[in-house]
Structures are given as C-alpha cells and as structure tokens.
C-alpha cells in the first residue's frame, strides 16, 4: 500500500456486506464487476464481519469512495503527517 496517496481505514462494525467496494474495485482493475475478482474481500457472517485486502491492493481508495456506510474511509497520507 506504500505507493498510494491514501490510507484506507476499516471499521467492520459498520459494514453491511453490500460489496459496493468490491464491485467498484473489480471494475476498475479487471473491467468487469464481480466482488470475487476484487482486491478487497468482505465476509459478513451474521453479526461478524471480516474485511481483507489482497497483496495487489495499492490503497487507491476506490473502495472507500463507494462505501455508503463509513465502514471504509480514506485519508490522504500528507494530511496525517
């Protein structure tokens, strides 16, 4: 994730499993929508939720841009310094 301008923060408690993050990510990097082809994997199982990123993830932040629930947010790295 080091080359990215962003840090992506994750709050699984707020995730609804809508997979909008994975849809947007897969479309950006493969040209087709499918959360299974994304660089972010979300598994909601009843009350629990797991959010993982693959090694290819470059923290571009498209997942956070498409999250409506604040389960994923992004901040500019410069802003944190």
């Amino acid at each position: 994730m080091s080359k990215s301008k962003y840090d992506v923060q994750v709050n699984p408690d707020l995730c609804t499993g809508c997979l909008r993050c994975g849809l947007a990510c897969s479309e950006l990097y493969t040209g087709a929508f499918n959360p299974l082809l994304a660089r972010i994997h979300v598994k909601v199982s009843g009350a629990t939720c797991e959010i993982l990123f693959t090694e290819e993830c470059n923290a571009c932040g498209v997942c956070a841009d498409n999250c409506f629930f604040e389960a994923l947010t992004k901040t500019r790295k410069e802003a944190q310094a």
């Binding site: 809508c18 849809l23 909601v44």
Partner: peptide, 19 residues
C-alpha cells in the same frame, strides 16, 4: 441491533441482524 445488512450494491441496507 448488531448489524444492518444490505443486498449487493445497496446503499441503504434494510435488513437486520439483531441479538
């Protein structure tokens, strides 16, 4: 309320998981 759950692509999420 434990979690609001959404169908794939839904920005509202009308389903519930409660405990």
């Amino acid at each position: 309320k434990k979690r609001r759950v959404a169908c794939v692509s839904c920005p509202v999420g009308c389903k519930d998981v409660v405990e």
